[in-house]
Nucleic acid binder design. Structure first.
Lengths: 121, 121
DNA sequence: TGACAATATTACCATATGGCGATATGGTTG
DNA sequence: CAACCATATCGCCATATGGTAATATTGTCA
């Protein structure tokens, strides 16, 4: 924010980044890669996904500059290219947890409405 | 990351948050709200959008706990409920800018391939 | 070069999402 | 209550996106 008052292009780029992280399967992909480089095959096994789907999402993350790619023989190793995403996830995680807690409290409040005195049930 | 190895539900929540930010129009909405509470009408004018669309996106942001809502007469004021989003945007902005710079450098490198000696064009 | 393994690409379907006009709802004022 | 704001919701369409099977590509090795 603040700095991208600028062009619509910049906003588009930012949005794209967020959209990349806005997909559960891709988050799980990144989660798997957090412990280090992995081949497509290894990732497929780890996530119990199907290969074309994994490749597709990896491609998207690669195009966005979030993951790196390295070929070795017939295998391709993917890794985290931009560790900042972990900071992002961390922030969002905390924030989402906070929100969830508030929602829960609100529900509680509805269930036990303002016990002014002792409670009369 | 790290902390949401846990449930798929948590991953879903995180993804949803990111998805909320993964839409140019919503980013612009938040940009407008950064300078303070605004009514729907004011936002419509500021973004030159149409009212139902603005309301819809505001509703989504509200459901996600990103913006707050306050009624005053027939108007409704929206504001930022979770300022963390600005940190997020800031991080992504920097990161995206970095990526853009790298892409540019790569292009340059292709255009002017390794001038070993003087240059032979 | 042929056979095989790993990964990428394509094609297609189902669903999700955004934009927008028409309409409903909620609140104010007379 | 009627008329009139401001906002929310609905219905529809066009497009984007994710999942998956079939197929193409790339690299290795004999």
């Amino acid at each position: 924010m603040l700095k991208f008052q600028q062009s619509d292009k910049m906003i588009g780029l930012i949005a794209r980044r967020f959209r990349m992280l806005g997909e559960p399967f891709r988050l799980r992909l990144l989660q798997v890669l957090e412990s280090g480089e992995k081949t497509v095959g290894e990732i497929v096994v780890a996530l119990d996904g199907n290969q074309p789907n994994v490749s597709k999402h990896l491609q998207m993350l690669y195009d966005s500059g979030i993951v790196s790619r390295r070929r070795e023989g017939t295998s391709v190793y993917y890794g985290i290219a931009d560790p900042v995403i972990f900071n992002l996830c961390d922030l969002v995680c905390r924030s989402a947890a906070e929100k969830a807690r508030e929602d829960f409290d609100d529900l509680q409040a509805v269930a036990n409405p303002a016990p002014r005195v002792k409670k009369a049930v």
